[in-house]
Computed example of a mutant assay.
Amino acid sequence: MRAAYASALDPDEPLTGLTLGELPLVVPDGWVPVDVRAASLNHHDIWSLRGVGLPADRLPMILGCDAAGVDPDGNEVVVYPVVEDKADPRGFSLFSERYPGTLAERLAAPRSNLIRKPAGVSFAEAACLPTAWLTAYHMLVTRGRLAEASSVLVQGAGGGVATAAVALAVSLGKRVYATSRDPGKRERIAELGATAVEPGARLPERVDIVIESVGAPTFDHSMKCSAPGARIVVCGATAGHRAEVDLRRVFAMQLEILGSSMGTPDELAALLDLIAAGTVRPVIDSTFAFDGITDAFARLAAGDVFGKIVIEF
């Protein structure tokens, strides 16, 4: 089967290890094959090519965490990306870490990882959801307790998780502010219904939830923008992980700093229902055919992306 896989690892030039070619499908006992109709890229794929979380002894490794397709019974499904993995210290791994990923014509997955795709959701839209959109949903709804909030700040909008958080929070009726250094991205943020501002800008109000994936450069701003009792929900630190925290502000404002990672199968099903109901639609940056995966990775690595990059089979 055709697949996009890591054939070598290079911390400095990760795309040199990306290969398109033929690899066999191996289906472990108790798993089922899925015909992949669409997949999407994540920065996790770039980090894998750098060798982060993917040692050389697991090569070649098919890349990709997200996919939607058809199961052996003809059902249209979305693949939940988290696999139980007793060999991993976390107790789980994502597709493409220990088990072959989703950027292939076919994928092997536990049947319990297959979530029904509603008829009103396209394969391309569904393929955007399992990692970035599910992470944003879990951060907002579960960890951030969105039902108790009126306002949200999203730092560094443009990438998959942050853009998903903007779209979800707006669609669920919250006042949303979002930062970006890029004027073009700020225009697109505004088109989603949020108030777009430059990083570090003063907001007209303090917010109840901050979605934080940038890290050290924005964390002080996140704290200063937080209302009493606000939740600062952190899912990453793409620009630096050693943030200074003024503990006086934490206790005086009774702030909650919450870590967040991925989400649950039930949350993915709930997210699919939101999409099917027309409440919100995934933001797709661009779509590529399988033969264009190299160009798709180059676009992701360049950083000039707003939303998700989708691969259609």
Rank of each mutant, 00 (worst) to 15 (best):
V52M: 09
P100R: 02
L63N: 10
D182M: 10
E22K: 12
F251W: 13
L258I: 15
A178N: 04
P217E: 14
G303N: 02
H44T: 14
E76A: 13
A162W: 07
A296Y: 06
T264Q: 05
M253L: 07
S226R: 00
V310F: 12
A296T: 04
A6Y: 11
L272Q: 02
A289D: 15
F251I: 12
F219P: 02
G74A: 00
R90A: 15
V166L: 04
E244P: 00
P228K: 14
A167D: 09
A190S: 12
R98D: 02
V70N: 09
Y99C: 11
F313H: 11
A149G: 01
R58K: 12
R106F: 05
N113E: 00
R111H: 07
R58Y: 07
V121H: 04
T287E: 05
A239M: 06
A243M: 13
K224M: 10
E148I: 03
L41S: 02
R248E: 08
A119D: 15
L172S: 07
G307L: 11
V310C: 06
I209G: 04
L20P: 03
S226M: 01
A289I: 13
E76R: 14
W133H: 08
L25R: 11
V234H: 06
D291G: 05
S286Q: 12
D57C: 01
G184Y: 03
D220M: 07
S112A: 14
G21I: 08
S48C: 13
L271E: 07
L140G: 01
L107C: 10
R299L: 11
D291N: 13
I46R: 05
G173V: 09
A194Y: 06
A38W: 13
A277V: 08
G184I: 04
S48L: 15
V26L: 06
R181D: 11
P217K: 14
D208V: 02
N42G: 04
A124S: 13
Y5P: 01
K117G: 02
D182V: 11
A167K: 12
S171K: 07
V234K: 08
T102Q: 02
V207K: 04
D304W: 04
P118F: 11
V77F: 04
